[in-house]
Design a protein around this nucleic acid. Sequence first.
DNA 1: TAGATTGTTAATCGATTAACAATC
DNA 2: TAGATTGTTAATCGATTAACAATC
Lengths: 209, 209
Amino acid sequence: MARRSQFKIPRIPEMTVRRLSVYTRCLLQLEEDGVKTISSQELAERFSLNSAQVRKDLAYFGEFGVRGIGYYVSGLKAELQRILGLDREWQVALVGFGNLGSALFHYKGFARQGFRISAIFDDDPGKAGKLADGVPILPMRDLARETKGRNLQIAIVAVPAESAQPVTEKLVAAGIKAILNFAPGRIRAPKDVRFKRRGAGAKLPGGVA
Amino acid sequence: MARRSQFKIPRIPEMTVRRLSVYTRCLLQLEEDGVKTISSQELAERFSLNSAQVRKDLAYFGEFGVRGIGYYVSGLKAELQRILGLDREWQVALVGFGNLGSALFHYKGFARQGFRISAIFDDDPGKAGKLADGVPILPMRDLARETKGRNLQIAIVAVPAESAQPVTEKLVAAGIKAILNFAPGRIRAPKDVRFKRRGAGAKLPGGVA
DNA sequence: TAGATTGTTAATCGATTAACAATC
DNA sequence: TAGATTGTTAATCGATTAACAATC
């Protein structure tokens, strides 16, 4: 029972995933502070949670603890980073290169999470075809081809509210698997598009994932 | 059973309050479009919710519907605005007048929700004592007095992460009833401090309340 | 009145918490 | 071994949904 098989996918509650990233940030800090191990009880107290909840959250993904000891800080941190996909680089498409898109393009926080903006999409004839800091600005009609060619997995949506939904549908059709929506208003996407977030501007300082 | 007495305070689920503001924005749109009435079923469909949930959410606050008809759009909109406090002006303290505080001060969205910044607190000797667009910048030691004198009800926290918690405690002690925290990181406040939000920058374009 | 839709109760579902055998 | 703490099952709690009498 050491590892969950890929055939049995237990639905992971949204809240569990959210807490996972909270645990990860905490473990990062603990590691810096030189703490070697931590119990579910100690971890729970830091966020006013129940220790059983911490254990259950972690147990969805494997057996990371040691009975009588707790969890090894570095080991657990590494596991959670892997689970959250923070240990690798993601190829990101930025859609919309107006004021908002341009600001997001220069925001350093994405790179810190391994989000690498490797293509920009904007139909403005004054922009499409140019480069921004070496990153190509492409017309939307190239989306499907470039998504495959550049192995784009995630899209950051920074278009006007009224374009957000049609753009989302194009992204999904092109095979994008996760969308960070910074457009005002709400968008809908099929359930299998993962890590979808309403990337409210405000979340930036705190970290997106 | 027409109106809930003030003695029987049924705990309102957080999610209900969140949906209330979603309903309100929708009703605003419907009113613009000239729609006169809407049923819980129709309202629910727009957000992929269950009609019973819509009715239950509304029923926490009173009987706003008409059997056989549904809800009158303008009437319900007005009721919800009243419940959410969007129909009146709130006196707001802005705490911290650095880059972030200054940006928030100039952001127009707060005024649109009836949030009026009528005092700024910052201990920087280069700032305290001055005016910003006619709004006084005051030292933190004046907080308690000014909160009462100016009837401040809400605070926007825009201080560095390490000051956020001590500032929060001072605000609570001074009698502030709601806090919008824009400082990086998390703050804790007693449960009776209402409408408390982690006001992630990203939420700004969408509307805070 | 007949039809529609509310407000509310009861059933269901899912998430949190308590409890404890397993085990380091 | 004795003590501590996990992973997991069962109990609890709360939120969502179905169902329906009340009533416009």
